[in-house]
Amino acid sequence: MNRLQRIRAYEKEYHDDCYENRILFESGSWLEKPVRTVLDLFEQLERPNGLRLLDLGCGVGRNSIPLASRLSGTGGKVVCVDLLESAIRHLEKYGREHGVEEELELHRCDIAAFRIEPDRYDYIFSVSSLEHLDSMDSFVKVLGAMAAGTRTGGIHCLIVNAGVKEVCLATGEELDPKFELMLDTEELGSLLAEKYRGWELLRHAVKPYELEIQRDGEPVSLRSDVVTWAARKK
């Protein structure tokens, strides 16, 4: 098993456990509430009806379900993409429970393999997912497909972990982080500025983040810079 396969196995184990044992929008985990920035930027869209949204790395729907509820009765749709069967299965269930199944379109697929149709979407967002692509080539390719797939006036919201470190809490030992892309915070900012040249920058923020997780049954501190990047296509 190579490094990519090992990391994907760790991530699958972690997320499968979370999705099976935590309930969406209940306190006690990061599934407790949607990301406020993602919801706030949706309100800046200019077209009231027939909006198409794309959630890359949707998980069980903590962002796509609240947005789908806002699309009710407008003819809009949230297209949801995730690699994990557990994510799509629970999202389908939560969509029924929240009465938004008609506003959701679900795809179990690697983000890098999902075809983003040109000039198709009004809002594309991705939360803590693009850093799990298999290579920088895939990262750049997906950014290009997202840009081509966005209508004029459409918005992107990217939330990406960079500068990631994992530290064993029992020993203080720094571990090999279980992230596919080890992005440098400043280099990521420069790359995004280049790829979004000509767009209207709506938000660029960097905030430190720390979360205690389990790795092989041991408590580990996951630390990163959370980079938020939002822009509107002119």
Rank of each mutant, 00 (worst) to 15 (best):
P66R: 04
P66M: 02
L67K: 07
L67E: 06
S69H: 09
S69N: 11
R70W: 07
L71V: 08
G75M: 09
G76Q: 12
V78Q: 11
V81D: 06
V81W: 01
D82Y: 13
D82W: 11
L83N: 14
E85H: 12
E85T: 04
R89M: 01
L91M: 00
L91T: 00
Y94R: 09
R96M: 08
E97R: 11
V100K: 05
V100G: 10
E101S: 09
E101H: 08
E102D: 13
H107V: 03
C109A: 15
C109P: 11
D110M: 14
I111G: 13
F114G: 13
R115H: 15
R115W: 12
I116L: 14
D119V: 14
R120C: 11
R120P: 05
Y121F: 14
F125G: 11
F125Q: 08
S126Q: 03
S128N: 10
L130P: 02
L130H: 04
L130Q: 05
L133I: 04
S135H: 07
M136Q: 11
M136H: 06
S138I: 05
V140C: 02
K141S: 08
K141C: 05
V142L: 03
V142E: 09
V142A: 06
A147G: 14
G149D: 03
G149Y: 03
G149V: 00
T150L: 15
T150Y: 07
R151M: 04
R151D: 04
G153P: 08
I155R: 13
I155V: 15
C157T: 14
